[in-house]
């Protein structure tokens, strides 16, 4: 479902060009559960943003569900994000002045769903992540784990085929992380493709495949290769 071909991304800082991604080719099939690992600054988030259509590659092509999204216009990308992709961020990224329910309704607001349908589906999504009794709470009335559950509910409410999570457990303790990862597993078993960026090997274990990024390139598992990498 995801097909990246020779993706590069570079920024120009002053006169210098910074090549963050230097040619990444990658395929992820529908229904996979993939973890992306790699050192800090290696370009994992940048890669995720490109996969999530939040960002465009400098060169290379990207097919999502057989569509060449690297050629899409801004409003088409917005539609892809709205319909096909759900994001979960390390910092939760909930709107602080909206209740859990309203936060979860947001993607459907932009999809143009009716008020009644929105509320119904948002409640269902919150129930799915175990927050049926917290619908009226504001984000700052929720614990970190609960916030991340709201964010997951929001990510899945439009029934996307792909959920992208950039260090979703980065701000959570171990027990909470396990619960959150179990949620992803459950979603994956229901058929949603999941890509998770993480630093934690425990988290990566949930995935069926691990991709390593190093200096903007795909690399081998450094643990398997042992001391051979320089």
């Amino acid at each position: 479902m995801i097909q990246l071909e020779e993706i590069t991304k570079s920024y120009t800082l002053g006169k210098e060009a910074v090549n963050v991604l230097r040619g990444i080719s990658l395929q992820i099939k529908s229904g996979e559960f993939v973890a992306i690992m790699g050192p800090s600054g290696s370009g994992k988030s940048t890669l995720m943003n490109i996969i999530g259509c939040l960002d465009r590659p400098t060169t290379g092509s990207y097919f999502l569900n057989e569509e060449d999204v690297s050629q899409h216009k801004d409003h088409e990308l917005a539609k892809v994000r709205n319909q096909s992709i759900g994001f979960v961020f390390q910092q939760f990224q909930l709107l602080p002045r909206l209740t859990a329910l309203k936060n979860v309704e947001l993607p459907m607001v932009y999809a143009g769903a009716s008020k009644q349908e929105r509320e119904e589906r948002a409640r269902d999504a919150l129930a799915k992540v175990g927050l049926q009794d917290r619908v009226g709470h504001l984000p700052n009335e929720l614990s970190g784990g609960q916030k991340q559950r709201v964010a997951i509910a929001r990510a899945l409410v439009n029934d996307p085929s792909l959920i992208l999570a950039d260090e979703p457990t980065g701000a959570l303790d171990t027990a909470t992380s396990v619960a959150i990862m179990d949620l992803f597993v459950q979603l994956n078993q229901e058929g949603t493709t999941i890509v998770v960026v993480t630093h934690e090997p425990e988290v990566a274990e949930y995935a069926s495949r691990v991709i390593y990024v190093r200096d903007g390139l795909l690399g081998q598992n450094p643990l398997e290769k042992g001391g051979q990498t320089s």
């Binding site: 999530g52 939040l54 801004d74 409003h75 917005a78 539609k79 994000r81 709205n82 319909q83 994001f87 990224q93 909930l94 709107l95 947001l106 993607p107 932009y110 999809a111 929001r154 439009n158």
Partner: peptide, 16 residues
């Protein structure tokens, strides 16, 4: 700014 970023990540278009 952050709110705008969130809304865009959820599929809000420029016009919206």
């Amino acid at each position: 700014t952050r709110e705008i970023g969130i809304r865009k990540s959820l599929g809000a278009t420029r016009q919206q």
